[in-house]
Amino acid sequence: MTKSDRGRMFRALPLGEILEQVLKERGLSDRLHKYRAFSCWARAVGPQVAAQTQPLRIRDGILEVRVAHPVWMQQLQLLKPRILARLAEYLGPGVINDLYLRQGRIEKNPSTTGAPTPLAWKSIKLGPAEEEYIAATLATVTDPDLRRNMERVMRRQAQVEKARREAQKSSAGSSSS
């Protein structure tokens, strides 16, 4: 498709809108909406509680949270109705129905823990399974420009995730010796 074959584009769509539409078409938008609980956790519980907790995963509407100390677990049990109400304000009712509290070590900054060195991900080679996954995911995208851009984004994301996993493995191996 050449530029002249396309109709005039009145406004460029933000990438977020495009991705949201693609996820919606693939039936993944509900799952993505649930995982927004991770990004709003600190606002929902406040900085003091957020420093002692770490959301881990969501299963069947239950948010699993790692808690640093038994005293904090007891406090969170008492605050559970208030926390669920705050999460419902951010995510909507019925997205998170309960909290499962588990004691464990809290990583100071989970977004950077195990992070590869800057740009280390660029040297990561994807395996055949990852390449097949990307190709299968994009098989129904007919617009070549959109397909190319989404492939680039998915490839980079896969490289970053693989680099992060490798960095975590190497840091876990060095800390156990």
Rank of each mutant, 00 (worst) to 15 (best):
P55Y: 02
P110N: 04
R82I: 07
L13W: 08
A12V: 14
T137Q: 14
V45T: 04
A135P: 00
F10N: 12
E130M: 09
P81C: 09
G92A: 12
S176M: 04
D98N: 15
G27K: 12
I96K: 02
S175Q: 14
G92W: 11
E166S: 08
Q52P: 02
A42N: 11
M9K: 13
T142G: 09
W41N: 00
Q21K: 11
A37D: 03
T140R: 11
T112M: 10
L23M: 12
N149V: 07
A85C: 06
R31N: 04
G61M: 11
A44R: 00
L28C: 10
G27Y: 03
T53V: 10
V153Q: 10
R152D: 07
N109T: 06
I62V: 15
I124Q: 01
G7L: 13
R105H: 11
R36M: 07
K169L: 04
A50P: 10
Y133R: 13
D98L: 09
L15I: 15
K34A: 05
A88Y: 06
R102E: 12
L78R: 08
M1D: 05
E151N: 05
K169W: 02
P118I: 03
V67C: 05
P14G: 14
D60I: 07
H33R: 13
K125V: 12
V160L: 02
F38T: 05
V153M: 14
Y133I: 05
V160P: 00
E161T: 02
T137L: 07
I18K: 08
G114R: 03
D60T: 07
A44E: 01
P81S: 08
S174Y: 06
T112S: 10
K162A: 08
D60R: 15
A68P: 06
R57P: 01
G16C: 08
G61Y: 06
A85W: 05
A50N: 14
A129E: 09
Q75K: 13
E20H: 10
E131L: 11
L63K: 00
L13S: 12
P93R: 15
C40P: 02
A42H: 13
S39K: 11
P110V: 01
R155D: 02
A135E: 07
M1T: 10
T53Q: 11
R26G: 03
E17M: 13
G104F: 03
A136W: 01
M154L: 15
R148H: 10
V65Q: 00
K122S: 08
L76H: 09
L146N: 01
E132N: 10
P70G: 05
P110M: 00
I134R: 01
E20G: 11
D60Q: 13
A85Y: 08
A50C: 12
C40F: 11
S176A: 14
G173C: 01
Q168P: 00
N109M: 03
